[in-house]
């Protein structure tokens, strides 16, 4: 897991076997007279851990999934295939296979990449994201990476950039297009002079205007479905921005297991501290 935030760091520590091993080691090496105090402190830290994991568990389980067909705006879960931008090879040192994102002990990729599903694609800005990806080893180099073609799950703020489209914008675009059409009088007559009198009368002009409006709308729809129009990034309200190549079901199981484990640890250590103290 690549840890960007303190919250991400705490979640990683508290949902890992290293934490109980560390606790056991400390309890084992400290003198028995000081043990109850340490046990009480560890009990409190387990309570805090369970709260942190509860929040993470709820965030993951309660965020609704959208697709690039729906493109629901706001804080959403998105599933798709990771891809580099067209014509790009992806970031990374020479010893790495092609990646869309990587993290080595010395370097971390900040380049954006694409996530696609059957309906479209979306730009992902991995800066400030908490990235959950497996650890790999290649030519004696350890690294974490997301590879092209891998399925990724994203929790973040989905925004469509070209969403703002006012009536004035549309009217202007329609008038502009109509003016362009009028330049080619023969084509204009061919398309809209339905009564064949060699003129575009008021009624035919209205039909032409409607046709121009529809073309403007369709162009807008086309732009709306382009990858650059949708972006997933960090929220401004402090909710976590997570990019994971591990399925959310597995993460939920992991977090719920550790949440329960920490509650049990809190109660057990509290009782033990009172008995020994």
């Amino acid at each position: 897991m690549y840890l960007f935030s303190l919250r991400g760091l705490l979640v990683a520590i508290f949902s890992n076997w290293l934490y109980p091993c560390f606790l056991a080691l400390i309890v084992f090496i400290i003198p028995s007279s000081e043990r109850p105090v340490y046990l009480a402190i560890f009990a409190v830290s387990s309570l805090i851990a369970s709260l942190i994991l509860f929040k993470r568990f709820r965030t993951l389980s309660d965020t609704c999934r959208t697709s690039l067909r729906t493109v629901a705006q706001g804080y959403v879960e998105l599933e798709g295939t990771a891809m580099t931008f067209l014509g790009e090879t992806g970031p990374g040192p020479f010893y790495l296979p092609p990646t869309v994102w990587f993290c080595t002990p010395k370097q971390r990729s900040v380049d954006g990449f694409l996530v696609t599903d059957e309906y479209g694609s979306c730009t992902v800005d991995p800066q400030k994201a908490e990235i959950i990806a497996p650890l790999f080893n290649r030519q004696q180099h350890w690294y974490r990476a997301i590879h092209p073609g891998e399925t990724v799950y994203i929790l973040g703020q989905l925004t469509t950039l070209s969403r703002h489209y006012t009536d004035t914008d549309k009217r202007q675009a329609t008038l502009h297009l109509l003016a362009d059409w009028k330049k080619d009088h023969v084509e204009m007559l061919h398309r809209f002079d339905k009564n064949g009198n060699g003129k575009i009368d008021q009624h035919e002009l209205m039909v032409a205007r409607q046709a121009a409006e529809v073309v403007v709308d369709n162009n807008h729809d086309h732009e709306y479905r382009q990858s650059a129009s949708h972006i997933v990034e960090q929220t401004t309200d402090g909710r976590p921005f997570i990019i994971s190549s591990i399925p959310p079901d597995k993460l939920l199981k992991r977090y719920s297991f550790w949440m329960v484990a920490h509650i049990v640890t809190w109660l057990a250590l509290s009782v033990l501290a009172l008995l020994l103290g």
Binding site: L51, T59, S270, L274
Partner: peptide, 28 residues
């Protein structure tokens, strides 16, 4: 350090902390 006090405080604080976490989640 009074161990009983630490444990007692954590028992009192825990329901409030969980309550706040649940409240914030419902608002979200």
């Amino acid at each position: 350090m009074n161990i009983g006090l630490i444990i007692f405080t954590s028992l009192i604080v825990a329901p409030f902390a969980w309550g706040i976490a649940i409240y914030n989640q419902l608002v979200t």
